[in-house]
Design a protein around this nucleic acid. Structure first.
Lengths: 155, 155
DNA sequence: TTTGACAGTTCTATTTTAGAACTATAGCCT
DNA sequence: AGGCTATAGTTCTAAAATAGAACTGTCAAA
């Protein structure tokens, strides 16, 4: 597979996988949502090699997920901030956290609890239909070819 | 990083990443949700090498995402069916598809459109709070340590 | 002037993945 | 019987990605 052009496939899942489809990238994004912003902080909390961290940050900047922002002029130092495009990855991360909570938990209970500031309660994320508001299940969804379809790819 | 024990980390995201955190696995799961079930069908639609496909299917079976079900006795042949645990990955896949639609689209429009059979409309998936039903945004969520927390890991 | 913090880069060794060929079982055709 | 096809894998070598450790450069503080 040509991973270098995966982001141009006529499949939205493939295009997303091109960006977040590896282990480190998802863990780096987790840290971003936990307000980690600096190279050393990512490196020490993840135990990722500096080389790989550098590569992944560059890639995330290239895709417009993170912005590299100077926070010190002398010496020049930068931190990495989620863009709106990056913030929009939140449902993916939360869906993964929720699945892990549900299916990969152990006897000790959840590692983290999430509070919705808006309503003040501990919550789980639920995926619903934008039209009727009902929770979504795979079997209730029918897939149609859209205008950007080509060949037999899909998702 | 010890990827072989990532599924035991005190972090639900890590545990999920241990299962679906690579490119091929997510693409294989896409095919599963499109009703692909057989080795040859996965292989020809994804152009994955037979070796890797075999490895990934074994891993998904090991984690209880797919069930290997015989569909022919002589010769013995098997197909791969999503378990409930596998079906529950749907929100992750849909969240990724939606992000791809929103942020990685091209001028030709979406590759696929999704119809909610329950209400009959074309929809987008929306992640909401289980308690108040409002759409979730990263900035409105506050994270607390849960009972399964240990050390500085999180998500 | 030496040490430490920070943000990387460079190097070699190990692990993973790609790509192609090979194995095994059995039905169908002649 | 002998060969062709379909299906579901396994095995092999080469190429690519990752791990792990050491190194670079800038500046501040001791």
């Amino acid at each position: 597979m040509k991973w270098d052009t995966l982001d141009e496939e006529p499949c939205s899942l493939s295009r997303t996988v091109a960006v977040v489809g590896d282990r480190w990238t998802l863990l780096i994004l987790r840290e971003c949502f936990l307000r980690v912003r600096r190279f050393e902080a990512f490196q020490s909390s993840l135990q990722i090699t500096r080389h790989l961290l550098s590569e992944r940050l560059k890639k995330l900047v290239r895709f417009g997920i993170l912005r590299r922002v100077p926070y010190s002029e002398a010496p020049k130092r930068y931190e990495y901030i989620l863009t709106q495009k990056g913030l929009d990855l939140y449902p993916i991360i939360m869906a993964m956290v929720h699945w892990g909570d549900t299916h990969m938990g152990d006897e000790r209970g959840r590692p983290l609890l999430h509070e919705h500031k808006t309503c003040g309660k501990l919550f789980d994320p639920v995926m619903v239909c934008s039209e009727c508001g009902e929770p979504l299940h795979a079997k209730q969804v029918h897939v149609h070819a859209g205008p950007g379809r080509r060949g037999a790819d899909a998702a």
